[in-house]
Design a binder for these strands. Structure first.
Lengths: 229, 229
DNA sequence: AAATCGCATTTCCTATAGGATCTACGCTGC
DNA sequence: GCAGCGTAGATCCTATAGGAAATGCGATTT
C-alpha cells in the first residue's frame, strides 16, 4: 500500500478514498488541474500510486460539489471556469442565502463567535495577496472561514447544506488564479462592518451588512472579469 | 452480468452504477429501507446481483444527497428521519430559497411555464392520497414538479443547486409514510395562488404567495408531527 | 481533398480475490 | 453476576484482471 493508513487516532479514521479526495481537491484548487482537462481514473490512480477503485469513489463525491463533471463511459473532466454571467448568478445566489445566515447567526451569537470572526479578519489582514496559489491560499482560507462561521452559527443544517452546495467559495477560489487578490481592502472593511453588527446584536443590521458585502464582491468580481478579458 | 446494459440509445447511456443508484433511491423512498438501518455494500451487491464496485459508487453519490450517512470502515446507514425541530429548520431554509426562486422565476415567466404549473396543480388534484408509497407517489411527484419548475425557471444554476441540496422534497417524502397526504386541499389552494401571481406577472406577489405556502406547510407539518408522536 | 472505414491503444466499467477492520458471542476469571 | 478477553463471522476496503466502449490515427475510397 502506497499511502500509509496513518490511523489518525481521532474519532473518525480516514480511508484511502479520503486521501485521494483531498489530493484531488488541492490539485483542483492550486491550478494543477485546469478547467476542462480530463481526469483519467486510471491515470490518476497511477499518479497517486493507488488502485482505481478509491479514485473512482473520490471522483463520485467530487462530482456532487460541481468541481468535476462526469459523462458515462467517457470519464470525468474538470468543470469549466465561470463566465462573468455565471459569476453574477453565483453572487445572486449568495445574496439569497448568506444574508439569511447572518440574520439567524446574529440571533445565536455569543462572545466566542465574535472572537473567532475577529480572528478571521485579522488573518485576512495578515495574509499575502499574490497571484499564485501558495500566496493567496491563506487569504482565501480566512475569507472562507469568516463566511462559514456565520453559516454554521445560523444553526440550520439545511441552510448550511445550501451554503455548501453553492461551492462558490471553492469555485471562486479558482477564479483568483492569475489575478491574485484584488479587493482585500474592501473585503476587510466590509467584514469588519459585519462583525460590528454582530457585536451590537442587531440581526437586521447584520443582514444588511452582509448584503452590502456580497453586492460589493459582485461588483468587484464583474470588474475583474472585464480586466481579465 | 446480471443487469443488461440496455444501451438506452439516448444522449447519455447508463452504466450499472446509475441503475444501482436509482434502485437505492426507490428503495429509500418507498420505505423498504427504513431510517437508521445499515446498508451493507456487499449485501446490496448480492441483492441486486452486481458486484460491490458499482454499489460503492452509487452510495458515494447518495451520501451527497443526505439520504445515507457514511462512517469510515463501518459502512453506510440510512439517514435518520427528521425530528419536528429539524423539519421546522427545513421549512425555514425553504423560506429562504424558494420565495427568491419564485420572484426570479416570475420575471422569466412565459405562457409555457404557466401551462406547466397548471398541469402540476391538476395532477395534484387528481392524485390519490393514501398512506402507502404506491398511493401518494403521484401526489408527491406533482408537488415536487411544481416547486422544481419554479426553481428551474429562476434560471440560476446555483440557486437550483441550493434547492437540490435541501433534499427536502425527497426527505419530506419519507415523512409522509404511514400518514399519507393530509394537507392536499390547502396545498392545492396555495399552489393556485402562486400560479395566479405568476399569471399576473407580479414578482413581488409571487414571492409573498410562496412565503404563505411554505409557512402553511411548516405549520401543518408541525401539527402532523404531534399527531404522529 | 475530404470523408469513411478499420485497427490499435487508451480508458472506462465490472467482477473477483484477499487483507484489514469491525461486530458478536462465548469463555474465562474475579 | 459481571467485566475482560479471544475467536469467528461478516463487512469494509483495496488491488488486480479482463471485457466493453471510446478515442486517435492511418489507409482507403469517392
Amino acid at each position: 500500500m502506497a499511502i500509509k493508513n496513518q490511523a489518525s487516532g481521532g474519532v473518525s479514521r480516514q480511508v484511502l478514498a479520503d486521501h485521494v479526495y483531498e489530493a484531488l481537491l488541492v490539485a483542483l484548487m492550486d491550478g494543477r488541474l485546469e478547467a476542462g482537462t480530463p481526469v483519467s481514473i486510471d491515470g490518476m490512480a497511477r499518479e497517486l500510486d493507488v488502485s482505481p477503485t478509491p479514485v473512482r469513489e473520490a471522483l463520485a463525491r467530487l462530482e456532487a460539489t460541481g468541481m468535476v463533471r462526469r459523462m458515462a463511459l467517457r470519464g470525468y473532466r474538470v468543470a469549466p471556469l465561470f463566465s462573468p454571467e455565471e459569476l453574477a448568478d453565483l453572487m445572486d445566489a449568495r445574496l439569497v442565502i448568506e444574508p439569511a445566515n447572518a440574520f439567524m447567526a446574529c440571533r445565536n451569537a455569543d462572545p466566542e463567535l465574535a472572537k473567532q470572526l475577529e480572528q478571521a479578519i485579522e488573518d485576512l489582514k495578515a495574509a499575502p495577496r499574490g497571484p499564485s496559489f501558495a500566496e493567496f491560499r491563506a487569504y482565501w482560507e480566512a475569507d472562507e472561514r469568516f463566511h462559514r462561521l456565520i453559516a454554521e452559527f445560523a444553526d440550520n443544517q439545511f441552510l448550511l447544506s445550501a451554503y455548501n452546495a453553492l461551492g462558490g467559495q471553492v469555485q471562486r477560489f479558482r477564479f483568483f488564479g492569475g489575478l491574485g487578490v484584488t479587493d482585500a481592502d474592501y473585503a476587510i472593511a466590509e467584514h469588519t462592518e459585519i462583525l460590528k453588527a454582530f457585536e451590537s446584536g442587531d440581526a437586521e443590521l447584520a443582514r444588511q451588512k452582509m448584503i452590502d458585502h456580497i453586492e460589493g464582491v459582485k461588483q468587484r468580481s464583474q470588474h475583474d472579469s472585464e480586466v481579465r478579458s
